[in-house]
Design a protein around this nucleic acid. Sequence first.
DNA 1: CATTTTTTTTCACACCCGTTAAAAAACAAA
DNA 2: TTTGTTTTTTAACGGGTGTGAAAAAAAATG
Lengths: 236, 236
Amino acid sequence: MNKNTAKVKDKLSQEKRTKQLKKGKGYETRKKILKAARKIFAKHPYHVASIRMVGKEGGFDHPLISYYFPSKEKLFEAVVVEMVEEFDAFEKTLYEGLDDYSLKKGLPIFINRIIDFHYENPELMRTVMQNTAHVEKLEDLPGFELFIDFLIHFMHTMQKTLPIKFSLDEVSRLVYSFSALIINYLGASSSYATILRMEPDSPEYRNWVQETMVLLFFPRLLSIILPDHQAAQQEP
Amino acid sequence: MNKNTAKVKDKLSQEKRTKQLKKGKGYETRKKILKAARKIFAKHPYHVASIRMVGKEGGFDHPLISYYFPSKEKLFEAVVVEMVEEFDAFEKTLYEGLDDYSLKKGLPIFINRIIDFHYENPELMRTVMQNTAHVEKLEDLPGFELFIDFLIHFMHTMQKTLPIKFSLDEVSRLVYSFSALIINYLGASSSYATILRMEPDSPEYRNWVQETMVLLFFPRLLSIILPDHQAAQQEP
DNA sequence: CATTTTTTTTCACACCCGTTAAAAAACAAA
DNA sequence: TTTGTTTTTTAACGGGTGTGAAAAAAAATG
């Protein structure tokens, strides 16, 4: 009975620790844990990443995590939520001023903004890539719906913002493939760059990604935005 | 001394077991192990897949694996080698008769052959996708060079076979992106199909992949194969 | 300063991992 | 059938996993 009440009290205070932010020291170490966790989850698939790795990465003992997060699952979800929120903030500036440019000039700028974001916040796309290959039992990856929501939101915004005239079906295919490809090239850069014999963080590889995305998507976007056969000659 | 000789003798006979095929019963169970292992490695990243899972999948006790494969690492490599060999065999028929078609007709056929192969042998691309997100320490994934070799070989053959007139740099970017995208759509179909609200194995999704790949790569390939601005009007 | 509360560490638990050795079973040869 | 060999199972090892309880340390409150 006594123990039971204590447990309930503990759970409540942990919930407060999780949600009621900025409460002196506890808030700081919560941030510290999240910082270490996001590095680990970006480097390993969910079931490979471990609580102990996170502790080692952040320089604290691993049971400390239990004091702030009730489970590995909840920690992962908190990390993903944080990363997606950062992306959402970035997304508000992603399309700024693009209307002033032609597609030929605007598309490279658009792509470069995404690349820049990634190299400042590499963990989101890496974590997505670490966990995109699940077969059967999708539910056994804790934050999976969060990833799905992120991707759907990203693609939907892109689709909405493109100055499309018609043919909605083609647009969704393009947006979908655009998203998939750039998340691959950025989030799994170490694999893709290896094949190209480049360094994943080199300007050379960044440039390769940018030019390749433009090469691939420019003509199709053009043909969708502009009516029919004018496509080839337009947009100086 | 006695023990030592026995050990050496054992190692030798295991090597024979591994290489000298078709020796009655042993050969059959080796196949049985590989069959179970490829299912497991297609479903989980290397460090999540376990020897015990393989045993459970195949209906035998897990130490039996040690009798045929000296380590998890070697088992994985054997699985990958087997899968790549199957693909190489398929690749010999992949380009057959494509010369007779225009790009507009040939490209969909080409893509469909790859899709058909995947749904008959789903493990290769799934296993690739399970392990493409490594950050740092690429060497800690046992068969990584095998994957790289597979991809380089696949892309190189494609590039060699395309009737390209000029602009080699653009071709390599296209081939590279083509490979990356189709391996993603097929090897991680459960994730991608989920976003599209389709079933990964449905004809609907297969069709979506085929049409999307054509939509994306047809115009660019056309503009590369044919000189310049004729592209838009050509190929009836 | 003394006491209480919050935060962190130490310890322990039950479970899964890859691998090895020994026992058991299945099979082959005599 | 008895012997010898190959194949499979059982048992055990050292180590890693997430999580919970208890002990210790640090901070806050009186």
